[in-house]
């Protein structure tokens, strides 16, 4: 991305939903910096078998979400994002399989907005910014992978391109809704 062409900046919103019967379905929405969709990719349901469940143990979920779903989606997507956003720290390991900076929103999706506290000078700062490996992006605080400190510089650069009031949780809602729709439609379709 050239510095002069901010409109080329693309964000990737990656998340997955779990279907009790079919397993995990992942979705990746690429948008421009204002949230307008450019591309969407989703996976077929991924259900770990019994062997995987036993052998991966507690690492199963990060494995399925990051290595299987996340990596596949990033490989498939045609419009490559400059920054991948996640809404769960479970997926942060995705950074180990991609060269694109990855950041996760800090709070759980059902939690309220990041708490803002007023400093003495009247400036509002997010309390979460005191977390290591975190910084402000849009109206959220994001965390990047501890082993990739170089992501801080990159994300700081992107942070300037994202409007300060951009709601970074909202696109995840769209992805979840789209995933629910694909699961619903594929379930309704005769095999």
């Amino acid at each position: 991305m050239s510095n002069g062409n901010h409109d080329q900046f693309r964000l990737g919103f990656l998340t997955a939903v779990e279907d009790a019967e079919r397993g995990y379905v992942g979705g990746l929405l690429i948008t421009n910096r204002f949230g307008r969709p450019l591309e969407f990719q989703c996976t077929a349901p991924v259900k770990p078998n019994r062997t995987q469940q036993i052998l991966y143990g507690p690492t199963l979920k990060p494995y399925v979400l990051s290595e299987l779903i996340g990596r596949t989606l990033l490989e498939k997507v045609g419009v490559k994002p400059h920054l991948i956003l996640l809404e769960s720290l479970d997926l942060l390991d995705l950074r180990s399989v991609t060269s694109t900076p990855v950041a996760s929103l800090v709070l759980a999706p059902d939690a309220s907005r990041p708490a803002l506290q007023e400093q003495g000078d009247g400036k509002e700062v997010a309390t979460a910014t005191v977390l290591p490996n975190s910084l402000r992006l849009g109206n959220e605080v994001v965390v990047f992978h501890s082993t990739h400190d170089e992501d801080r510089t990159e994300i700081e650069k992107f942070a300037k391109l994202v409007p300060v009031d951009a709601d970074l949780r909202e696109p995840f809602e769209r992805v979840r809704e789209a995933l629910a729709e694909t699961v619903r439609l594929s379930a309704a379709r005769p095999a």
């Binding site: 307008r36 450019l38 591309e39 969407f40 989703c42 996976t43 991924v46 299987l68 989606l73 045609g78």
Partner: peptide, 19 residues
């Protein structure tokens, strides 16, 4: 024996028209 393999996962994609 069992070795971790990365299964191929089917995907579905959609590109939005350029405005």
């Amino acid at each position: 024996s069992w070795k971790p393999t990365r299964p191929k996962i089917a995907t579905y994609g959609l590109q939005f028209p350029e405005g």
